[in-house]
Every structure is written in structure tokens, then in C-alpha cells.
Amino acid sequence: MLSEAETDALLLSLKVSFWSLLIALPVAVALGWVLARKDFRGKLLVNAFLTLPLVLPPVVTGFVLLILFGSQGWIGGWLKAWFGIEIAFRWTGAAVAAGVMAFPLIVRPIRLSFEAVDPRLEQAAATLGAGRWRRFATIALPLAMPGVLAGAVLGFAKALGEFGATITLVSNIPGETQTLALAVYALLQVPGEESAVFRLTLIAIAISVLAVVASEILARRARRGLSATERAGDA
């Protein structure tokens, strides 16, 4: 029912979103914890910088990324020289653009849920002999898990739909950088492709709804884990 080009766009979108999330999520967890727990000079600036992708026109963000990640750019040149990774006009670039645009949305719920974890529990863990990493891994992270899941799902959905920064950074190359959103845009330029547009639109809606429902279920399960008796099988 989908043409080959449409299938490519769908699979590419999933791949791009998956990788952007894989890179962005650990960074977001670390940053969310730091912002929730540490006071340092320039925290306000970091916060403002984090919000930029939300408030800047996506095209501008895309252009900044092009400067940074182009093969002559600071980061782009370094990635190419050391890892052989090319960003400009590649699907990897689409993942970078999606990750950067989604990052503020991923960090926010994670930060909020770390803030909601009672630091006195970590103190108690410290008196029981748990060092910094063990406290993070066994107390802070599990208790913040609903926020981490919420951030991940929100980020995934955002990455899936990213358009402006992506098209600016990596253009709209079928099979390489043409994600679902870019494919819809491209098809809209061609008369008589309305049915293809509709199909892709429905797919985009279906994936988003699935993601949001999945996050709700996960969050509910995480919440229930805090209150009720653990089921016998889990013990």
C-alpha cells in the first residue's frame, strides 16, 4: 500500500529519531540531574541556551548547525577527521538536527522529576554506605524514571516531526535525508499526489498517538510501582 519511496521515508524517520534519541537521552539525563541538583555560576545562561531551539526559528537553528557541523565547521571537521562521520547532507545530519531540536523537550521533564526526588533519600543512602554513583543509579534515577520516559517519548515525537532545521542542514534528498515530514512537504509540491500525502499524514498521526499512549502506560506503571505492594512475581 506504500510506495518504495514512502516506505523509505518512514524507515528513515524512525532511524533518524531512534539515533537522535539514543545520543540525546543520556546527555539530557546528565544535564537534567545537574540542573536539578547543582548550583553553579552561569546556570541561568545554560538554561537560556537550552531554550534556544524552542524559540529560535528552526531555519536559524539549522543554519547555526550547518556552520558548526558542516565539513569545514568546528564540530563537523572534527567528527570527519577522527571518526569519519559526515554530517552535512547525510541522514546523520538529520539525526543531529532532530536531536538538537528535541533536546529542550527531553531535558525539561527529566529535570522536573529529578527535582521532585527528595534529596534526603540520597542522604539516607549515603549513611548506608552508598557512594555517588550508587545513589544515582539506585535512588535518583529509578525515582525519576517517569520523567525520563516522558522526556524520551516527547523527544522521539518531536524528532519524528522535525522539519525546518533538518531541511536547512541536510536538504531534502530522497533515500538519504528525506524523512516523513520532508516527504510530505515534497509531495505537496507535486500536483496529484494528495493520496500519498494523506497516507503519510495518517502514518505520522498513528506513530505519534502510539508513542504518547505508550508513555502514559509506562508512566502509570512507574507511579504504581511507588505505591502498591510489589506483585509476588516481582519480588
Binding site: R120, Q123, T127, L128, G129, G131, I139, L143
Partner: peptide, 20 residues
């Protein structure tokens, strides 16, 4: 000496059991 290495047990007023 950092708290984890002190071997000082504490029972807090509010228990502070790990809820999860």
C-alpha cells in the same frame, strides 16, 4: 571522611525509606 565511609547508622525522624 565522607558519609558512606563513616559507618554511622542513622534513623531519621521521617524514616526515609526508599519508596520504590
Amino acid at each position: 571522611i565522607a558519609a558512606p565511609q563513616r559507618r554511622v547508622g542513622v534513623v531519621f525522624q521521617e524514616g526515609r525509606l526508599f519508596p520504590h
